[in-house]
Design a protein around this nucleic acid. Structure first.
Lengths: 204, 204
DNA sequence: TTGCGTATTGATTGACGAGTCAATAGCTTC
DNA sequence: GAAGCTATTGACTCGTCAATCAATACGCAA
């Protein structure tokens, strides 16, 4: 009764992409191996053959999710921008675009955050991701701080990076839960004004 | 075999508070009626007698959670503060204190956010809560905008309120998932500097 | 072509947990 | 103290789903 065979990497990919679709629809806990298997066109036994347990599947899915997420790529076009605040701004804008363009991915990530509350292994991976996120912001934050040492006395680059990340993640939360009353454009306009404030030279 | 009886409101309270404890530990999906019952010292049949289903219990828990959450109380001490930005600042600080002092509550709220992704009834309640949150910030935001119409051209009070909420919620996310690398003090220092920027009169 | 190794299947098991319900004990009323 | 109401119980049913495993067909090597 076995069907046609395929290479291991093909099968894993196939199953993971099915798991992605199912988990997006049903949530992590609500993901049934049966449904993933159907979606991938294989038997549920095969899913367990490759990933050994549901937990194994979900952990692999998380790795896959993080690996296929364009990790906050500070592209050349952004680096080219002269002012640090302008770069920070471009980064924010880029990330917020992701929010509208990849809602499914964001939703899943969200789900993994929650799972991470109780599962140490998941939490570790999410911590690393947050850290990468903050790290990506830090050099920019450093430049901004250097631009106005007086105003930013006592503020660390880490602190400012964390705030930047907060704005993004907080935006994600609102956009996800309350898309109707949450206007991304207004949000962007407000953040950009705040950026501009950081740019503005200190009043002599 | 029935045990001693109690008033309906007592029992509901008793069960809900047990559900709170259990849900905090196990997560919403992981909450078993059996465990809630044991924790409340009643039979699991009674839990269903009062709440009719697991879903009913969780929805009631959500109501209870929102009702017992000090809803962003803009206290007298805050209102008394002269400058709007100072009030905004005080509000932010107050909310961030909640993050450290009531981690359990925050974790549960987080869980409900995730549940709200797939459950319309839960989502609605969470939307209302976000809306209340933004509403509480709006008057302050309005004042801030009025203070520097040039700088904030094109920025709406809603937008600025949404950013404020983002900062809080994003802070919650990071504090929850990565408490080790997330330094609330640095975070506060950074936000306060940003607040100060908004206060600063435009350079002539 | 034959034979071997393994990827694949699907029937099966076992556990768990939500929801039902008839029996019953506690409270209230007269 | 009797009767009636209902809150409370716990045994039960039913469905679901993860995980196991023996059987089997496919692909490959000789």
């Amino acid at each position: 009764m076995p069907g046609t065979k395929a290479s291991e990497s093909t099968r894993r990919e196939q199953i993971l992409s099915a798991a992605y679709a199912v988990a997006a629809r049903r949530g992590l806990q609500g993901t049934r191996i049966q449904e993933v298997a159907e979606h991938a066109g294989v038997s549920h036994g095969l899913v367990l053959f490759y990933f050994k347990s549901k937990r194994g599947l979900l952990l692999a899915l998380l790795d896959w999710l993080l690996a296929t997420t364009t990790v906050l790529h500070v592209g050349r076009d952004i680096i080219r921008l002269r002012s640090p605040a302008a770069r920070l701004q471009a980064l924010l804008r880029q990330e917020m675009n992701r929010l509208s363009n990849e809602p499914v991915r964001i939703r899943l990530t969200f789900d993994f955050w929650t799972a991470g509350i109780r599962d140490a292994e998941i939490r570790l991976k999410m911590q690393q991701e947050l850290q990468r996120y903050r790290d990506a912001f830090r050099p920019l934050a450093t430049s901004v701080l250097a631009g106005d040492p007086v105003q930013f006395r006592g503020v660390t680059a880490d602190g400012l990076a964390a705030v930047s990340v907060s704005v993004i993640k907080g935006c994600a939360v609102q956009a996800m839960i309350d898309p109707e009353h949450f206007d991304i454009r207004q949000f962007l306009a407000a953040t950009e004004s705040l950026m501009a404030l950081m740019l503005r030279p200190a009043a002599a």
